[in-house]
Amino acid sequence: MFIINSFLAVYLLFKFEMCEFLWLLIYVAIPKCLYLTPVIMKPQDKERLVKSRPQMVRSLDVTQILPQLRSANLFTKKDEQIIMSDTRRRERVIRFLDLLEKKKTDVYEKFQDILGDVYPQLLLSLTDWEDEGEGPLPCNAQLDDDWTMLQRARQYLIHEIDAAQVVKYMRDHNALSEDEVRAIVAERNAQTRTEVFLDMLELHKPEDYDTFVEAIGETYPHVYLTLTGDADDRSDED
C-alpha cells in the first residue's frame, strides 16, 4: 500500500509539473513569439540613405514613390500628409527621407524595389556595386556645367528672381507644362514660387535649362550675366 501511494504521489507531482510547464509555455512563451521586437533598419542601409541624400533631394520626386508605399501599407496616411503638406519638391523629399530612416528594413527594401523601377540610376547610390568616389547620375538631369551652375546659384536665384516673371516665356517655349505653371503661380510668396520652379527645372532635360537662361536674359539681365559668366568677363576687362 505504501509503495502504491508513493507511485501515486510521484505521478501526481510529475503531472502537476507538466501542467505547470505547459501553462508557462502557453501564457508566456507563445505571446513572446507573437510579439517580437520590430526589425529596425540595418545600420548600413541607413548609412546608404544618409550618403545618397544630396542626390535624392536633387533628383527624386516622391509622388512617383509614395503611392506604391502607401498601397503596400508601409507608409501611413499621416506620413503622406506630413510629406505632401509642403508644395516644394525638395522639402517633400527631405520629409520623406526623414520618415524612411525611421522605418523597418522591409520598408527600405520595398523602397529599393520601387526605386529600381522608377529611378534606376538613383538605385546606384544605395547598392554596394557603385563605383567608389563617384555619386550616382541624377535621373532626369545631367552632371554638366549648366546644372552645376544652377545648383551653385540656387540661393542667389531664390533671392533675386520671381519665377512668376519667367514661367510665361518657359511655357511659350514648351519648357514647362500647364500644370507646372499653375503650381508655381499658385504660391503667394515670391521666394517659394522660385523654389518650386527650380525644383521642377532640376528634373527637366538640359535644353529646358537653356530656355530658362534665355528667359532670365529677357527679364533679369543682371542675373543672366551671373549665370553665363559674362559679369566676371566684364570685371576682368575693367
Rank of each mutant, 00 (worst) to 15 (best):
P120E: 09
K205P: 00
A141P: 01
D146W: 12
L176A: 03
W147L: 13
I184N: 03
V181S: 05
K168F: 13
L143Y: 03
E132I: 14
L143T: 02
G135A: 13
W147R: 13
P120C: 04
I161L: 04
D144A: 07
A163E: 06
L203M: 10
A183V: 05
T148Q: 15
A141L: 09
E202M: 15
I161N: 03
L123A: 06
L157T: 01
D131M: 10
N174K: 15
A153Y: 14
L198Y: 02
P120R: 08
V181M: 06
E130A: 14
L150N: 04
E130T: 15
L137Y: 08
D199N: 13
D131E: 13
F197L: 00
R188H: 06
H159R: 09
A163W: 02
R188L: 02
L201Q: 02
E180C: 08
Q142F: 14
Q151S: 14
T148R: 15
A186V: 04
L157N: 00
L124P: 01
I184Y: 07
L150V: 02
D146L: 11
K205T: 12
V185K: 04
L122D: 01
D144F: 12
R182H: 15
D179T: 08
V166R: 03
D162F: 00
L143E: 00
L123C: 00
R182W: 06
R193K: 04
